[in-house]
Design a binder for these strands. Sequence first.
DNA 1: CACGATACATAGCACCGTTATAACCATGGG
DNA 2: CCCATGGTTATAACGGTGCTATGTATCGTG
Lengths: 204, 204
Amino acid sequence: MPRAADPTVAASLVEAAARLLATEGPAALSTRRLAREIGASTMAVYTHFGGMDDLVRAVVRAAFDHLAAELDRVPVTDDPLTDLAQLGLAYRRNALADPHLYLAMFGPHPDLPYQPTEADRVHGLRTFTTLVQAVQRCLDADPLAPAAGTPDAAGRIAAQVWAAAHGAMTLELAGFLDDDGATFTATTLAVLVGVGLLPDNPSQ
Amino acid sequence: MPRAADPTVAASLVEAAARLLATEGPAALSTRRLAREIGASTMAVYTHFGGMDDLVRAVVRAAFDHLAAELDRVPVTDDPLTDLAQLGLAYRRNALADPHLYLAMFGPHPDLPYQPTEADRVHGLRTFTTLVQAVQRCLDADPLAPAAGTPDAAGRIAAQVWAAAHGAMTLELAGFLDDDGATFTATTLAVLVGVGLLPDNPSQ
DNA sequence: CACGATACATAGCACCGTTATAACCATGGG
DNA sequence: CCCATGGTTATAACGGTGCTATGTATCGTG
């Protein structure tokens, strides 16, 4: 066996890329800048990753893992509807904490040198399972809900909740909303009411 | 007076940029490529626009105008709920017709040399008025709707509908959904039910 | 210990956006 | 009618990008 690659170099690259993306935006992501940042040459990007796009891919996957961990930190209580609300807030908090990274997660990304592959999407959908489970707990707690019993009800409802939250989040980050998350919560709540998981006149 | 700028050159640049963006993606947008495309030098981008970013800005504004025209083409009938559904379908059709352009409209865009300004957002929100008017017609037709009467009900509801549609559209374009628009229609319908514009058990 | 495969550094290629310079040319004033 | 004015345009260059070819250093194995 030949010389082994220094795993700390790869980790440093991912860390530096995520940090530069967060603090200076995608424009700061360049092989030379990264090399300078970690005290190596630009070749490090090509030996440890195939190129710039695979490095960004690793950053995005790490971002999905981070989001999944944040969502898993939301405690599971005996009120699954409150759990769902907390998941939504955690989702928005994660996006606001690092908008560039959040936007990088949801390609196709015009100018980031990264086009998500099918494997990337499968990996990203893993984050989705926490939400599906929470929806399933809501359906279990309320067997009279209209959707309960239909095939893959939890998955389909979770997809709608995710779409609503993601849409409001994207519009907010783009600057089209300026309501401190009011549309975010209103939209996700409206979806929950619409699918029958929340009563028409929620007391909260 | 000196030599006047040829307006056809500016129009050709916007047309070529939109075409290249649609057919080859944002990576094909370069001053040299555009100059070759319209048979001029790269300076054309800088005399007619301030630079690459202002050219993309013009393309995005044209895209918003195109979307607004598409939405305005949806006929106004005596069934405002059907009108809303048709607006949603037109919105999705427009996005699927040119995904790159659609994504370019909703910055902040990582790698496109274009950061939307406040003026751009105001311009983009003009597209929004058609949706707000359709929601208002729904509220007028159903004075018993829960939200009717609250301040700016149409605007707030329209924002939620837009967020839901945009979120489902973005996820679909990113490849996270593969259901031919099922989540798109389900999410927007759920929001309409949630805000009280549609009955719980829509007959359709 | 020596071999060979691999990590890494250097230098270079083709491309990018942008800009300085100079030539061009349509126009308004004399 | 002619000419000076000044924006338009082309050319060339600067610093930057991703990436690759080449050479060297370094490690794991036999």
